[in-house]
Amino acid sequence: MPEPRWIIHLPTTLTSQDAAAELAAALTRSLGHVDVVDFGETTLSEEDAQHLRYRVWCDMRLADGGRCGLRDGHGGSCGATELR
């Protein structure tokens, strides 16, 4: 049986989903070199509704084995751009 993965919940004082997504993008740019963090799986939730999560990145699997690095809900085709 594989070892369980752990999730770090990082509360903020931000009051909008867009601002929280921008912070998540800044953290991804800043800490992207840390290979133990799966930034593609980043989600957001309201403080009192943590069971309801919103994806930050599309993260769709691509034919070449990579993942889409565009924001969730993007228009057009998925692409292997870096998470930003």
Rank of each mutant, 00 (worst) to 15 (best):
E3R: 13
Y54H: 14
W57N: 02
R5F: 11
Y54W: 12
Q17Y: 06
E46Q: 14
Y54F: 13
A21Q: 08
Y54S: 12
R53F: 10
T13P: 01
D18K: 08
A49F: 07
W57Y: 07
D18M: 01
R29D: 07
D35Q: 10
T42P: 07
T15I: 13
V56D: 10
D35L: 07
E41I: 05
D48G: 13
Y54P: 00
T13G: 08
T15W: 00
Q17D: 04
L23A: 04
V37H: 02
G32D: 01
E22H: 10
T43R: 13
E3S: 12
T42Q: 03
V37N: 02
Q50P: 14
A25Q: 12
G40I: 08
H51D: 15
A19D: 15
H9D: 15
L52V: 15
I7Q: 09
L10F: 12
Q17C: 07
Q50K: 15
L52D: 14
D18Q: 11
R53M: 14
E46D: 14
A21P: 02
L27Q: 06
P4F: 05
S16R: 06
G40Q: 06
A26E: 14
G32L: 01
H51W: 15
P4A: 11
R55A: 15
E3T: 14
R5Y: 08
A19S: 10
E46W: 15
D48P: 02
R5T: 15
S16A: 06
W6Q: 10
E3Y: 08
L52I: 15
A21E: 08
S45R: 02
E3K: 12
V34E: 11
L23S: 01
G32H: 00
A49C: 06
V36R: 08
E41F: 06
A21L: 05
F39D: 00
T12Y: 04
V34P: 00
A25L: 06
T28V: 06
D35M: 03
R55Y: 13
L10T: 12
H33S: 11
A19W: 02
W57G: 01
T12Q: 01
R29I: 00
H33T: 12
Q17I: 13
G40S: 07
H33G: 15
G40W: 06
T15H: 08
L10D: 10
P4S: 08
A24Q: 02
L10G: 02
V37K: 03
A20H: 03
E46T: 15
D18S: 09
F39L: 04
P11V: 07
D35K: 08
T42I: 11
A21V: 06
W6P: 06
R53Y: 08
A21C: 07
P4G: 05
V34Y: 07
V37E: 04
L44R: 02
S45D: 04
W57F: 05
T28Y: 01
E22S: 12
P11G: 09
D18W: 00
I8Y: 07
A49L: 07
Q17M: 09
L23N: 01
R53P: 04
E41V: 07
P4W: 03
T43Q: 11
S45C: 14
S16E: 10
G32A: 00
G32W: 01
E41L: 14
T12V: 05
R29A: 11
H33F: 09
L52C: 09
T15Y: 03
W57P: 00
E47F: 12
L31I: 00
L52N: 14
F39H: 09
